[in-house]
Amino acid sequence: MARPRRSSGNRRKNNKHGTIRIWPWLTGAALLFVMYFAYRIFRPNTYPFREKTYFYIPTGSTYADVLKELKQQHIVRNVKDFDWLARKLDYPHHVHPGRYAIKPGMSNLQLVHVLYSGKQAPVRLVITKLRTKADLIRLVSHHLEADSLSMTTLLDDEVYLRQYGLDTNTALCAIIPNTYFFFWNTSAEGFFKRMMQEYNRFWDSTRLQEAQKLGLTPQEVIILASIVEEETNHNPEKPLIASVYINRLRKGMRLAADPTVKFALGDFSIRRIYSKYTLVRSPYNTYLNKGLPPGPICTPSPATIDAVLNAPQTDYLYFCAKADFSGSHVFASTYAEHLKNARKYQEALDSLHIQ
């Protein structure tokens, strides 16, 4: 006897139940798949540093270099996960050198976005009083990618400096102390070009006119201001001290400025200038040479430069530190009067055994 056939309705019913049983597995698998990749994309992937840190990508770096630096600079925990997403988003073809702010807990997506965008975290460079080119070189090479060799080469390049009306002695005239913001990967040439832009902005028509009234060029004003800067920290007296040196220049007298002797000797710790020091052979020694030294002996502040430009008309030719060591000075129009003031100060030094 033939077996009865199952109806097609039963088969459809069984298929329907089978499909219903498979869907939860597929949905679960898909959900796990999404969660896995979301985990790789959005989970925090930086080392647990407390505050934001900075990731440096040197100029000329390849994507392979970036991966290496992420390890060496201890930025990323799981480089493989970063690499996977970076390749998906085509970052290897968009590597930008620079300094990037990395915050604690950043995800792979956030990291790739920051680096892909090329939006650097600027470097805050505070320039105060610098006495030598070596001081400037150390400051710049410590904060920017421009290394000491490239900075030294630039500051010793007469041909390069000549285009700005400078030479190796007057190169520091381009540096106006202030707070500046740079991108970390700024080159030595880029740094100096920026400084010249600030220099030209500083020397506006008003300051140029004031310098012209004194019969000085902007560079000569800066050189004179550098001497004033080293003479005192007492701002109210700077215009008067400037007037002394301006008067000496006009009379053809030697400036006989103690700070130029310290610069010539290369010893800024000297507190008392003896006659033997004033005999040092150097174009910067204003005891031996008439006129201004060939370059600034420091980078004077804008306030000191303005003190020179606005120096009052006086008949003072001499000044000396007060014997009370207050930091102030006494001024004199005659040498005899000056000797009296100087003797008081020297006696005060002797009483304290200051050499």
Rank of each mutant, 00 (worst) to 15 (best):
Q212W: 08
D147G: 03
E220Y: 02
V126L: 10
P294I: 01
L224S: 08
A211I: 09
K340Y: 07
L89Q: 13
R87G: 10
N200A: 13
E347W: 07
Q197A: 13
N15M: 12
P122R: 07
L111G: 07
D258W: 00
Y91F: 15
M151R: 01
R207Q: 11
A323R: 04
N185R: 01
Y180H: 08
F181Y: 13
N285K: 01
Q313T: 14
D157R: 05
H94I: 10
Y39H: 11
W84F: 15
F42R: 07
N247E: 11
P4R: 15
H17R: 15
R271M: 13
L172T: 05
E347L: 12
I175M: 05
L32G: 12
K68M: 10
K103T: 14
G165A: 05
E210P: 05
P293F: 03
E347V: 08
T53C: 04
P293A: 03
A257Q: 03
P294Y: 05
K129Q: 14
F55R: 02
G266M: 06
N200P: 00
T304Q: 02
H96D: 02
N247C: 09
Y160I: 06
R194G: 03
W23V: 15
L214C: 07
D147Y: 00
V261Q: 00
E145Q: 14
Y316A: 01
K68L: 09
P104C: 08
L26R: 01
R138V: 10
A121S: 12
M106G: 09
A311D: 06
A174H: 08
P104S: 10
H142T: 12
K193N: 13
Y36G: 14
H96C: 05
P283A: 04
P48V: 06
V261S: 09
G118Q: 06
W184R: 04
L111F: 01
H93I: 11
